[in-house]
Design a protein around this nucleic acid. Structure first.
Lengths: 338, 338
DNA sequence: TGCGTCAGGTTTACCGGTAACGTAGCTTAA
DNA sequence: TTAAGCTACGTTACCGGTAAACCTGACGCA
């Protein structure tokens, strides 16, 4: 006997002993199988209940090298309001079906993501949901080799590891670029954050720049802070940018949080929005829509993305047909700040 | 041989065979044990690497009925910005130590929480973190019986299931009540949401009412919406409340999101804040601090709570001494809206 | 009477890892 | 010289659940 301390929890064998049947019978009864009398079923159920039986999913998942009902999900930052909604969409859809979601965050770093994937794969999950399409070779190897469903969300990719659900960040930038040109803006700036690692934010900037250049009014200046994209970086980023280029007539921000910071700066300096300066965000924070002036931004269907990712994953698990790439359209909301 | 399809993944035995040692030696080498030659160590490590060995934590956790490095965490809503920060605090602290966090949300329902706990306990996690102190008897039984560390966060309780980290919501309300009285407000209202289930929001209201009553200026009116606490409910909640009681001179909101909605309503109707009406929130959203007028609110140290909860859990796991109840103080930020 | 069938089970053989204990060969100190 | 000790491993016996195969008595039926 290895463990000295008495075991506190009943297992199938304990129930079997008390019920006078084999542990296999108990297992099948508790999993709702058929092939035993009503009396046996009732007795086993009652005894399991009385003994406070808690199934051991570790043992079950281990016994069946397949299906563990564990799903891993990794996002860049847990503190982002947008990802909170994505997470919520995933969790609602999956928990309803009996899955458990294991989370992780990678701070926009592909290396941190790989470290997370390495841990998670060891738990033999049913599937994995990643954010973005920027992964290390090690991550891709690990996941392909594991042979489990993988859904890459948020940024689309034409060649997903397995499946992808999202939209094009580049196109978001293009759309905003075209929009500000149509509104007559000619000297555009950009305020962003974490340029090196946030590939998706960079893609938006590139799309924005491309559209402006095509229209003959290239990006005038940019200010990219080495900080996480929040309200204060937006505030001070705009301050810095305008100090260099007071003549800008519109500024595109990394996201809504930063744009709201920028709006606050304008308010504090008496800069009239959108008359003196246009402000554009990205993401579609709920807050952005009830500001004194409704923020011009791109609304991202966060919850829908989470839900679609979960559904794609489950469809693949069930062997149902499902498309590899699901495009979830974003929506430009004109607002009143540009 | 049960499985027809060839197994794709190498296990300890496969490595052992190739390396010409026993699987126990492989297990010990890979876990960094000692008691073998440098040659053996290097050979086993290289072969494991070459074969793309991914440890099976399911099997390891199952073998040792103890320590699974899985930790469950359940919050009321994943979409709340505040809980995103708590989650981040927990995840950062735990993932650094090699734990995996399994999430869940209960929508402020003790029954949903119990259903979640029932699922999670079956995975034999190292510990569980819950939000609030309102649990079903079944939840408490399940957790006590499982004998694992449990941390209740957010709302303090004097008799935790195991440990608690948080603050008193009632006291937050009292503090705000006393504050508005000191500022000369005499006709206070409240706008909230989800009254039945959000016990913590209710506690803040009760504290607020108690302080007002004690000062001789009891709460004049309240508007509680059956909706989740967001910007729009704040906007329309204030509209409804002021339609009934145009004479209010201050309104306490369920949280900052609702308060910002309320501010937006004031702005749209030309109600001067704080001259005509004081607005007070709760939570300390980052957004609230860069609004045109800094919101009067209670700042909650979200990340610190998550971190403290994780640390308490780990301390208990290690058998280190740790206090059962950790008070993490909130801070009233006067702001400019009341 | 003999045999097939079916309900209602039981038995067996793992899943992949780990703790506890065992052991061969060599060194070392009394 | 010899027992004790150390090094570097190997062996055994599980952990709790599950699939697959096997068993058994009762009944129907030719």
């Amino acid at each position: 006997m290895r463990s000295v301390e008495r075991k506190t929890k009943a297992n199938l064998e304990d129930i079997a002993r008390v019920a006078g049947v084999s542990k296999m019978t108990v297992s099948r009864v508790l999993r709702g199988g058929s092939g035993f009398s009503d009396d046996t079923r009732a007795r086993v159920r009652r005894i399991a209940e009385d003994m406070g039986y808690v199934p051991n999913r570790l043992a079950a998942a281990f016994a069946l090298d397949q299906a563990s009902t564990l799903v891993g999900m990794c996002v860049p930052r847990l503190t982002s309001g947008l990802f909170g909604h994505v997470l919520d969409g995933v969790d609602r859809a999956l928990s309803r079906l009996g899955f458990q979601v294991m989370i992780g965050s990678n701070n926009h770093s592909a290396e941190e993501e790989e470290a997370w994937v390495r841990q998670i794969v060891a738990w033999r999950p049913s599937g994995v949901i990643l954010s973005g399409r920027n992964h290390t070779a090690g991550t891709v190897d690990l996941l392909r080799n594991a042979g489990m469903p993988v859904v890459e969300i948020w940024e689309l990719t034409t060649s997903p590891i397995d499946m992808a659900v999202g939209f094009s960040h580049f196109d978001c930038g293009v759309e905003i670029g075209q929009f500000v040109i149509r509104r007559g803006r000619r000297r555009a700036g950009f305020v962003g954050a974490l340029s090196r690692s946030d590939v998706m934010g960079q893609a938006r900037l590139q799309g924005f720049e491309a559209a402006l250049a095509r229209a003959g009014h290239p990006l005038a200046d940019r200010e990219v802070l080495h900080d996480s994209p929040g309200f204060y970086p937006g505030y001070y980023g705009l301050e810095t940018l305008l100090a260099r280029r007071p003549d800008l007539d519109v500024v595109y921000f990394h996201n809504d949080e930063m744009a709201i910071g920028g709006l606050a700066y304008c308010q504090s300096r008496g800069i009239r929005v959108p008359d003196d300066l246009g402000i554009v965000g990205w993401g579609g924070m709920e807050a952005a829509s009830v500001l004194p002036r409704r923020l011009t931004t791109t609304v991202v269907p966060t919850t829908a993305i989470g839900k679609a990712a979960a559904e794609a994953l489950v469809a693949r698990l069930k062997g149902e047909p499902c498309q590899d790439v699901t495009v979830v359209p974003t929506r430009l909301v004109p607002g009143e700040t540009a």
